[in-house]
Design a protein around this nucleic acid. Structure first.
Length: 708
DNA sequence: ACGGTTGGTACA
DNA sequence: TTGTACCAA
């Protein structure tokens, strides 16, 4: 449970952006003929038409709900369009949705501090932008507020369905003598409307949003008016909102904790929580949760928007319900292999695109013993160091499974009883590689004239073998088996257009990984000493294990791979907050208005001119200035393509936060002089490049950030 | 004996 | 640090 820092002067402006029935939208973009039709995305299961995981709003009008089976949906709505989730390796493959989510995040992250909360949700911290707007171009000066913003819902505004809601909203947004906090929210609303239109323009996706003073209220609000609408929670309406809000509607209270509050404390609305003292709540739920509850009851939540654009872990799993439960080691191994193959591919993509390395492999399984009715013991999770390379991950995962199985199965009992109902492997503890450029690259480039990659096939081995406790036996009692529902793996190997270029990148990656591993190993963690690694050139040179690298990339090139979005934390290292200040000359530019830009349009202009730090954006502004064009909803494919490539070609200069005192200096001295220098540069706090944002206008609203 | 799959966080 | 449980969508 997150600890809420009580910040009574909570004048932040936070937004929560929630994509509308996201998977459906992704499929409808792919198949535009589905637009406007009742549509659902279904996970093909062969059982009752599969399970629905996303339902369009048209279909919801017919009473179709998530968690219906496909057949059920057909009954309720015979004309419903069911689209299957892609299947790869006998399991659902969500990559297309992940990638679509990345598109959205990268658009938002160009403008504001973002936290990717899930595949289709993002939090934004608009505090600085809103403050800046309030200072320099407050809404009260707007002659015209654009339609999208006027469609905002303002909680507590008289009657909502009043005669002219838009006029009320306009009044609220532009109210001159409003509370400062409300004015900030008004600014936030303008900005969010703009961002949502930008997302629509570039991705064809609609979203809904909530704007409030903290994350939990913003989250609450974003769900209140869907789809494609936004909701503001003025400070003054928080109490009224919470007083009548069913406790289970609050995030984090939808499960057991919420139930306990209802049944044990007799609480039915969030407002009911107000009667309990903090001590009382702590006594029952622990000090952290108690305090959190006490604050939530008052609409207080100090959680910050984390500048994180990428997931902290990757996982691949599958369940084997009922009769499909796995009974043999061989079938378990088969599925582990499939899962590891996918996971391996994904962390490889992460590596290629984001320069991140996953360090821990974890195996989760769920199981039961057919003998025992209520077997107390759950199948234990196990983890170990993650070694890159599909075969290695498969081997390690299998070993983890066997270790778990030994604990799980009753002693002595042969192979009796156990059934595996779920398997998943995940990769976590992901760290960024400092992707420096220059001397290291050059050094290895020079050192290795092998621009050609040997097509030898061996599993790549980025990391030293982990010292696994259970790396011993590997006895399969059953041999080959049939795995029903298991289509032959159709790996789509698409031609790689820029193969040559890709190869070089891979080679660089390999070098960087090797180097990085040396650093990481030495600094943080592991068994390998720098010297021994140096003595083992195979892990430095890109010759070995190159193959798997390439293979993985070739496969990926067929599918859309995750767009490379660097963590915002890193972006901030590259473009530290201080650099966000804009020169005064630009500021005047922001204020300038053309006659064409009446009020609202000037805001759009801000965005359009806000080129993210130079190399970040390759997007051409080729669309008309007219906001209403957005409604037409026919972005060109090129716009989308551009969006996809937004992050490409970016060169990031990362500063490292390694602790110098953890490094054995002698280790560095063994490196070639150029590299020594580079390492030392990494180890020092990075000098910030003096980057000035030019030609931006809405960027003017993004005042220097105060927080770290 | 599960809508399936994926991700996050808190806590011992 | 590892493993477990809970939460959300």
């Amino acid at each position: 449970m997150p600890v809420a820092k009580p910040e009574s002067s909570d004048a932040r402006v936070i937004a929560h952006v929630d994509m509308d029935c996201f998977y459906v939208q992704v499929e409808q973009r792919k198949q535009p003929n589905l637009r406007g039709l009742p549509t659902a995305v279904v996970q093909y299961n062969e059982w009752k038409g599969g399970g629905l995981i996303a339902v369009s709003y048209e279909a919801r009008n017919y009473g179709v709900k998530r968690s219906m089976r496909g057949e059920e949906a057909k009954q309720v709505c015979p004309q419903i369009q069911l689209v299957q989730v892609p299947v790869a390796r006998g399991k659902a493959d969500l990559n297309t949705y992940r990638n679509a989510g990345s598109e959205v995040v990268s658009i938002l992250a160009r403008k504001v501090r973002c936290e990717r909360a899930s595949i289709d949700e993002v939090y934004l911290d608009l505090t600085d932008a809103a403050e800046k707007m309030l200072a320099e171009a407050p809404p009260e000066n707007l002659q015209l507020v654009d339609e999208e913003t006027l469609k905002s819902h303002v909680l507590g505004l008289n009657d909502e369905k009043g005669i002219d809601a838009k006029e009320n909203v306009r009044e609220w947004l532009c109210k001159k003598d409003a509370d400062r906090r409300d004015k900030l929210l008004a600014c936030g609303s303008l900005i969010v409307a703009e961002l949502r239109m930008q997302v629509l323009k570039e991705t064809e996706f609609t979203c809904s949003a909530g704007i409030a003073h903290n994350k939990i209220l913003a989250k609450l609000a974003s769900a209140m008016n869907k789809p494609a609408q936004q909701t503001v929670v003025p400070f003054s309406s928080v109490k009224g909102l919470l007083d009548s809000l069913p406790i289970k509607k609050m995030k984090q209270l939808g499960g057991k904790l919420g139930s306990s509050l209802q049944s044990d404390l007799g609480v039915s609305t969030v407002g009911d929580l107000l009667q309990f003292s903090e001590e009382k709540l702590q006594e029952r739920y622990g000090s952290n949760t108690g305090t959190w509850l006490w604050n939530i009851a008052r609409g207080i939540s100090g959680e910050e928007v984390q500048g994180r654009l990428l997931p902290k872990s990757h996982g691949s799993g599958k369940t084997f319900p009922g009769p499909r439960a796995l009974k043999t080691i061989a079938s378990v191994q088969h599925w582990l292999n499939e899962l590891c193959e996918e996971l391996s591919e994904r962390i490889r993509s992460d590596l290629d695109q984001n320069k991140r390395i996953a360090r821990t492999l974890t195996l989760h399984a769920s199981a039961y013993k057919s003998g025992d009715t209520d077997s107390q013991k759950n199948f234990p999770s196990k983890s170990c160091h993650l070694r890159y390379g599909t075969a290695k991950m498969q081997e390690d995962a299998f070993n983890l499974f066997q270790a778990g199985l030994r604990e799980f199965k009753p002693q002595g009992s042969q192979n009796s009883g156990w059934r595996i109902t779920g398997l998943s492997v995940s990769a976590s503890k992901i760290v960024e590689i400092p992707s420096g450029t220059s001397s290291i690259m050059k050094y290895f480039h020079g050192q290795n004239p092998s621009a050609s990659l040997s097509k030898q096939s061996q599993d790549d081995d980025i990391q030293e073998p982990s010292v696994s406790e259970s790396c011993s036996e590997m006895n399969l009692t059953e041999q080959e088996m049939k795995f029903p529902g298991e289509d032959s793996n159709t790996k789509c190997v698409m031609p790689c257009l820029d193969q040559q270029e890709h190869k070089q990148d891979l080679q660089k990656d390999q070098v960087m990984i090797s180097l990085h591993n040396l650093v990481i190993f030495n600094l943080h963690v592991f068994q390998i000493s720098f010297c021994s690694a140096l003595q083992n050139p195979s892990c430095l040179l890109p010759s070995k294990g190159q193959d798997d690298f390439q293979e993985a990339s070739l496969r990926n090139s067929g599918t859309e791979c995750c767009s490379g979005i660097r963590n915002q934390s890193q972006q901030q290292r590259v473009f530290p907050p201080q650099q966000f200040a804009v020169s005064s000359s630009n500021r005047t530019d922001a204020k300038r208005k053309t006659s064409k830009d009446k009020g609202t349009h000037s805001i759009l202009r801000f965005f359009k001119k806000t080129d993210p730090p130079s190399s970040l954006s390759l997007i051409k502004e080729e669309h008309g200035d007219n906001l209403q064009d957005v409604e037409a909803l026919s972005p060109t494919a090129s716009a989308r393509e551009n969006a996809r490539h937004v992050e490409e070609g970016r060169e990031s200069i990362a500063a490292c936060s390694y602790k110098v005192d953890e490094i054995d200096p002698s280790v560095i001295e063994e490196l070639p002089p150029e590299i020594q220098e580079e390492f030392r540069a990494w180890l020092r706090p990075r000098k910030r490049p003096d980057i000035v944002r030019r030609g931006s206008s809405i960027a003017n609203y993004f005042a220097p950030t105060k927080r770290t």
